[in-house]
Amino acid sequence: MDVLARIDGQVKHSPIVIYMKGTPQFPQCGFSMRAATALKECGVPFDYVNVLDDPEVFQNLPRYADWPTFPQIYIGGELVGGCDITLELHASGELKQMMAAAVAKAASQG
């Protein structure tokens, strides 16, 4: 499958997905660690893709999203941003609301 189609499938299939360096348990980049920690603190389950384990996604995600850096956080199929935006949304309380809404919407659509 074409890599952009594969990324699109991941983003649309998961209510919340973070593309990060490493894993939420063992992040390998300070920005990825902060973003994953913010998601964890919201207490809503989320998926992750370790881009260090998937060179094709690593190479092509920036052009999929018109976004040059990692991590990238998608909620409800939309790019929310990278580390800095995710932290701002977490600080304002919006992040948890967005995550909960995306999970609820996915559940209602079965």
Partner: peptide
């Protein structure tokens, strides 16, 4: 805010 410390991933 201050930026985070490195965790090694940029080596790759």
């Amino acid at each position: 805010p201050a930026s985070p410390p490195c965790r090694g991933g940029s080596k790759t």
